[in-house]
Write a protein that binds this DNA or RNA. Structure first.
Length: 270
DNA sequence: CTGAGATCCTGGGGGC
DNA sequence: TGCCCCCAGGATCTCA
């Protein structure tokens, strides 16, 4: 499931390969996957557009177009954005294809069809409800502490709330809480200042290390070139039910919190 | 406002 | 071996 490090890796790959290209035609095989503003036709609006840049906001990949419009893609769990050479075979489950004038294609594939591409008008505040970028200077210890204060919600549920911090998903929420030695079910407001600072540091550290390793491939994730990431080899808790905690040796447990599988160490996460 | 629960999907894994 | 069932999970919506 692509979270911030995976989307960042995809976006960097796209920035290196498709910027400057011009869209020759667009093929939408599953209409719900490709949304456009009222009275705008997705395929027709994109035809002839030049790719001006590719950036990331939270877990969204944002393709800036020459006209000032943007193509915002949410990959959800199994979505893939992959660049393909001319005549290269389509990925299984490809629902939207942008073909450039040089024959290269950008394919949007998703076996579960939860992902979405959305064409956005210039200046449209599509990311209004997204919180702070955790790897930006705007994510401070003080700001984080203020967000947590008074909240009764379990700290893990808080980390998954994209309106507060944008980009953390289930894998990195579990990993950051383990690194900070905090029990996932602990109410946000019950964290001490020391614990808040540990968690702030752990979030930045985990996301940075995972991005450096080009993300985590546990099931479906691949980057824009179709390559897997490397962080799945160094996970501390996620998916490691029964395996020994790297810190204390006790077995990792799995519980359910906020309707999500939650892996953690009962001994060293308090 | 806040939080809980349902919903969307289908490949793959577990159980028998 | 084969088949069935159920689960994974991000965003969005509804409801209390």
């Amino acid at each position: 499931m692509p979270e911030l490090p995976e989307v960042e890796t995809i976006v960097r790959g796209l920035a290196n390969t498709i910027v400057g290209k011009t869209i020759a035609d667009v093929n939408v095989r599953l209409p719900k996957m490709a949304q456009a503003p009222p009275r705008v036709r997705f395929e027709r609006a994109l035809r002839g557009e030049r790719i001006a840049g590719v950036t990331r906001r939270g877990k969204y990949a944002v393709v800036a177009l020459g006209s000032g419009r943007s193509l915002v893609t949410s990959l959800r769990m199994t979505g893939r954005l992959v660049v393909q050479r001319p005549r290269e075979r389509d990925y299984p489950g490809t629902h939207v294809i942008l073909r450039f004038t040089d024959g290269v294609r950008l394919s949007f594939a998703d076996v579960r069809t939860f992902g979405r591409m959305r064409l956005v008008e210039p200046g449209e505040p599509w990311d209004r409800d997204l919180g702070v970028e955790p790897l930006s200077s705007g994510f401070t210890q003080e700001g984080f502490a203020a967000m947590l204060s008074g909240r009764t919600t379990p700290v893990k549920a808080f980390l998954l709330d994209q309106r507060r911090i944008a980009g953390i998903g289930n894998i990195y929420a579990c990993e950051a809480l383990w690194e900070a030695r905090i029990r996932p079910g602990r109410p946000a407001k019950a964290l001490t200042k020391a614990a808040i600072d540990r968690l702030h540091l752990a979030i930045v550290d985990v996301l940075t290390r995972a991005t450096d390793m080009r993300g985590t491939s546990v099931d479906d994730y691949v980057d824009a070139a179709g390559l897997e990431g490397g962080f799945q080899n160094v996970l501390s808790v996620y998916g490691r039910l029964g395996l020994p905690c790297a810190r204390c040796g006790k077995p990792i447990v799995r519980t359910v919190l906020a309707q999500r599988g939650t892996w953690w160490c009962r001994t060293c996460q308090r």
